[in-house]
């Protein structure tokens, strides 16, 4: 036993030291530097090419022009309005879609009968392309917020639902038996074994759901909106201003990345127990 413990502790010291050493920090910094070489080179080349007149400004303006566009929207206050309305739509749709998926997915994953009853229907509905919903939702709910948020919720629902069902059905029978040895009730079994065991695939589902949420918000805002980043795309197209279009594409990219990072951080925090490559200390 003593040798076992010492061996382990020695291993721990070694990895902790590796992480804190200048070499470890250098390694991390190196990743960031390596990852940004290509984008920076491309940006500089783009800027130079635009300045040299190689790129037509009415098709592809220089990065500095796009940045200036974003700054001017920030100064006149319209940037905040567009970003916040789009974020609100995504957030509400995401919350509604995820909430519904948790409830339905838990029932379908847990009860065989519910799966046989509901799953074929959901699988069929899932294969409908997202844009096909737009006219129907507008007919049903008008052009206002409810139709947009419903569309996003539908988009978020399916990946979350599929992953929850897969997660619950994939729970190791051996762990469930541990719960049965201690005579846990079905409710306790769900709470103490099934849900924690299904958490990794639930979070995976949320991340791909969020990605689809961003896709669907563009669809919703393209169809008819008076504010939002998708609306900016339409305005840019109609006024022949590529800087507006690219600026809003850029903002979508940034927002999508930031919101995904938040989920990734939650994933990291709540799945520290996982024995995976990314968790190797």
């Amino acid at each position: 036993m003593i040798s076992e413990t010492q061996k382990w502790k020695a291993g721990e010291r070694a990895t902790a030291a590796k992480l804190l050493s200048p070499k470890g920090l250098f390694k991390k910094g190196r990743g960031i530097v390596l990852g940004s070489i290509l984008p920076v080179v491309l940006l500089i080349a783009w800027e130079l090419a635009a300045k040299a007149g190689l790129l037509a400004p009415h098709l592809l303006p220089a990065p500095s022009v796009i940045l200036e566009k974003i700054m001017s929207m920030y100064r006149d206050g319209s940037l905040f309005g567009h970003v916040s309305i789009t974020l609100t739509r995504v957030f509400l749709g995401f919350a509604i879609g995820t909430g519904a998926a948790v409830v339905v997915g838990a029932v379908v994953g847990y009860a065989k009968t519910a799966e046989q009853l509901l799953d074929p229907l959901f699988q069929a509905v899932r294969s409908i392309p997202s844009l096909a919903w737009v006219p129907l939702f507008i007919l049903w709910m008008g052009i206002g917020e409810p139709s947009k948020i419903s569309l996003i919720a539908v988009g978020v629902f399916f990946p979350v639902y599929l992953n929850i069902v897969a997660g619950i059905q994939g729970v190791d029978r051996k762990l469930i038996e541990v719960g049965k040895i201690y005579q846990l009730s079905p409710f306790q079994l769900t709470k103490r074994i099934i849900l924690p065991a299904a958490l990794p695939s639930f979070i995976t589902g949320m991340r791909s759901g969020l990605g689809l949420g961003w896709m669907f918000v563009v669809a919703a805002e393209l169809m008819g909106a008076s504010e939002g980043l998708g609306y900016l795309l339409v305005v840019g197209q109609n006024t022949y201003s590529p800087d507006t279009v690219i600026a809003s594409i850029l903002l979508f990219a940034v927002l999508g990345k930031v919101t995904d990072s938040v989920l990734k951080w939650i994933e990291y925090r709540s799945l520290k127990w996982q024995d995976s490559i990314s968790n190797q200390a």
Partner: peptide, 20 residues
């Protein structure tokens, strides 16, 4: 006790011991 430990991977050693 089983052939495998069957610990719950999301619980610490302390919480695994207290599980029952």
């Amino acid at each position: 006790m089983f052939q495998e430990p069957r610990l719950l991977p999301w619980l610490s050693v302390k919480d695994n011991i207290s599980f029952g």
